[in-house]
Design a protein around this nucleic acid. Structure first.
Lengths: 162, 162
DNA sequence: GCGCTGTTGCAAGCGGATTGCAGCTAGGCG
DNA sequence: CGCCTAGCTGCAATCCGCTTGCAACAGCGC
């Protein structure tokens, strides 16, 4: 969770690719690490450390430490969608930013450069360099907004969370 | 912390104003409540429940409950600036949205309507209704961005946090 | 003043994350 | 192929922010 800002991203899409990065960084490939990488590669979206740990029957502390290590080495990034736990994902699909619906918990991932115009606008107006990868744009998706933001609908289209 | 979305805002700038709202809602004015309202009126920016509790020598649970009550009745709003605790403020100055610098922890508050063009743009592009009052726009202020986002400088210009 | 009910403080508990530590193992080296 | 050690692991304890259960207390309408 406490990874210093801006780490050189390592885009990997295969286990071998990830292992190669580990090796090149002098990190070991423990069985725990291998399992985690496989799980992250197979994951649909960002997942919580807790979910990874329980699915793979691993110790939560180790999973947290590993995710932090992977993040420090640019293989993984985590995002805070609403109030829940941090959610981790490989950088397999390149860098992403998120729109998070506070109503239904759905997260929409978009390539970083897609929000560049928005970012530029904020920079021009406020001299502020916005990033939506670690903390997303939060609000209501069209469906929830239409529903008046009253019906939560947490049951449907649930969060990508863990 | 768990206040259902969109409560009719109650803009009050004086203790009497706040008390009037309480009364009209059938809420009591306990000494704890009075102290909290005074503290919130005197506060420069959003403050954490913990800070309120320790400053006033009150029980943290009570402070949390009270802040939630006040928020449920539209007198107070809370915002999540980065990783820390939720920060609470009266709606005295009207509704606000925030830009939070992940580098130095500084929060810039702007009137809600100032970000309406941005919001419109996001709505047009994504059919998404963004709000930056509960979860702010996060990134780097110009100073921190210029510093390469490396020097944290948490010591200076510290967070409005508690 | 009396009593009803909202509110309070304390203590316990919960979810998410971090830390200390002793033991294990990956993998470089001989 | 086996040794050695630094990196890693699981466990247990701890922390932080927040919530909940509960018995006692105190606003405030009468």
């Amino acid at each position: 969770m406490t990874v210093s800002h801006r780490v050189e991203p390592q885009i990997v899409t295969t286990l071998d690719g990830a292992i190669a990065v580990l090796r090149s960084r002098g990190l070991r490939l423990s069985s725990t690490r291998r399992l985690m990488l496989e799980a992250l590669l197979a994951a649909e979206g960002p997942v919580s450390a807790e979910r990874v740990a329980s699915r793979l029957n691993l110790d939560a502390a180790s999973v947290h430490r590993n995710l932090e290590t992977l993040e420090r080495h640019g293989l993984v990034r985590h995002v805070h969608l609403g109030h829940g736990p941090g959610l981790y994902a490989l950088l397999a699909g390149g860098e992403r930013e998120y729109l998070y619906c506070d109503g239904c918990g759905a997260a929409r991932a978009v390539p970083t450069k897609e929000l560049d115009p928005l970012r530029r606008r904020i920079r021009e107006r406020y001299g502020f360099e916005a990033r939506f990868d670690h903390f997303p744009i939060v609000g209501l998706c069209s469906a929830c907004a239409a529903a008046g933001g009253e019906e939560r609908g947490r049951e449907l289209a649930g969060p990508a969370a863990g």
